[in-house]
Design a protein around this nucleic acid. Sequence first.
DNA 1: CTTTCTCGTGCGGTGATCAGG
DNA 2: CCCTGATCACCGCACGAGAAA
Lengths: 357, 357
Amino acid sequence: MADIDDRTLDPTRKGEPRGPDARRHVRTLADLARLAGVSAGTVSRALAGKTLVNVETRDRIQALARHHGFKPNQMASKLRTGRTGVIGVVIPLGQDRRGQISDPLFLRLLGHLADELAECGYDIMLSRAAPDGTADWLERISGSGMVDGIIVIGQSDQADVIEQVAHAYRPLVVWGQGRSGQTQCTVGTDNELGGRIAVEHLLASGARHLAFLGQTGAIEAAARYRGAAAAAQSAGAPFVHLPVDPAGEAMGPQIDRALAAADLPIEGIVAASDLVAMAALRILHERGRAVPGDVRIVGFDDLPFAAQTTPPLTTIRQEIAQGARALVERLKARIEGQPTRSLAMPPRIVVRQSTRS
Amino acid sequence: MADIDDRTLDPTRKGEPRGPDARRHVRTLADLARLAGVSAGTVSRALAGKTLVNVETRDRIQALARHHGFKPNQMASKLRTGRTGVIGVVIPLGQDRRGQISDPLFLRLLGHLADELAECGYDIMLSRAAPDGTADWLERISGSGMVDGIIVIGQSDQADVIEQVAHAYRPLVVWGQGRSGQTQCTVGTDNELGGRIAVEHLLASGARHLAFLGQTGAIEAAARYRGAAAAAQSAGAPFVHLPVDPAGEAMGPQIDRALAAADLPIEGIVAASDLVAMAALRILHERGRAVPGDVRIVGFDDLPFAAQTTPPLTTIRQEIAQGARALVERLKARIEGQPTRSLAMPPRIVVRQSTRS
DNA sequence: CTTTCTCGTGCGGTGATCAGG
DNA sequence: CCCTGATCACCGCACGAGAAA
């Protein structure tokens, strides 16, 4: 044993002339094992905190590892154990494939997911996927052993592809709109109910001629529109759809035109998102139409800036922190083979000045 | 050869009774090799598109792989090659350690990084790190062989820790504020110049009593303040600092108090960020102070919503798409061992209504 | 017989080297 | 000697079996 310890006295000297670049002190378990005078297996167990190794040996090895800044190679560990400790988070770009993740809500959801997953000891592999007509963008991630599970943020126009992959790949959960009869596990806001609540609030506040402002290409926005339209219809209130593109540079003129095109004097607006609502606030202000005096506006999402608009925005809040928690919880369940239920969270209206007379 | 092909006709039959759970058709190179009647090595080369294998053999194997939905295990590949194809993107939480990545600018930068890195074939490992006083949050990522390089978004209060790690770990680039004599490679906006430009614009627009609105705890904000203060001083203009916390729930009252506390009638405001500027717009509107009539406001960042405030916000634009490109380009250079230079991008003022009389 | 540690094997793919035509 | 494909060792770690105390 003494002769082995001798080596540790001069770690700069290479043991054998074979190593062409063996300057780095400790790169593998074996290196550390040599220094500690034990075997690699023992070091492995010691660093993992297993009980099969003497406490003082373990502490000694851990101290040695810390001193040399040694971290076991994760790739080898992952390969050996078959567990990666990584969750893939994928954002399909879909229709708005300008290459940039645009929806600020998704980015905030991502932030919350980072919190939740870090909490459970998972790392995040982030992919922004540009669907190419096949399911490859998803299978590339699910099939290559890089992750233990996948969270898809937003279905975009890929709900069918996701559904197909979900049949074969269990540890998969999706933020988005649930549909009856689906295999995939979705978590999201009840957008239809959100639209309904918005309209009912507008009606209660005295507005009668209503409009839905924003595109309905995204499945979530379509649901919001449906809910809003249904609520207006059952109240017998006039209701029009003014599609504007929040991605376009010139949302201002678009909204301008949309409002001008409406042949009714609009008294209440349900916006597809907070950003659209904010643009509407600005346009109306510039046109001399008072909010909430002449027109009332309800946004959607309750992003942080919604409280800072002029006037502050009444909006349908999506509980994304709670959603992130639900996503991770369900994913963990699925990883362990348990069945899960989809979740449509009830939205809550946050009333601020934009609808308060 | 014919007898070997026979095997491929009935892939459901297990070759040997040994596999206890061999239902999955093709899980390894060896499986596919058996089906194709070649060796595992050949399959590996065929799938990698190497030229050392006959073209028709290669196509046959590729077709077979596609048909069985086979994807080679990435962990094994990464381990063997020593190349992970993954870049770690880390966001230190630092002072605002409420557990949530709060700065919307960082999230947008992340989006652009996702684009750039995907372009180069890199995957992203996302970590939100809660610094604990040691350098461990960074070394955990750099030292464990999980990534080929690291991008740190925002130094928070960890510039020293990053600097220390940068000495030993080369493939590391940082979004943030550069300091002279540093080892780390930083890319960021010249915040000091941004502050100066903002003040000069305000002075030119006729405002004379100026204020900087927002906290200066973050190193970037501090630089903006320095630049603004210096510009005001050299012009002999009165200049005060009104610290408000953009994270706090009650930014409104805070701004209220800050403005009331100023013993001068403020005519021009430089805000630490667009979100702060937006809150100021709202407060001033509620207090009946006209923007830009009574007070002019300049924001910082030029986030998308800056164009939609009421009135639209003049702001110092940070070119984050360009910044993301520079970060990735420098990181790639460093991965290949080349030296790199830090970059402080000149900010550009985007003039909108909030300073236009 | 228990505690503590060593040994050998294999996770799955890759590249150098080697064999056959 | 060129072309195609096979062979074998190995990346670094983890786990089961078994040896030493």
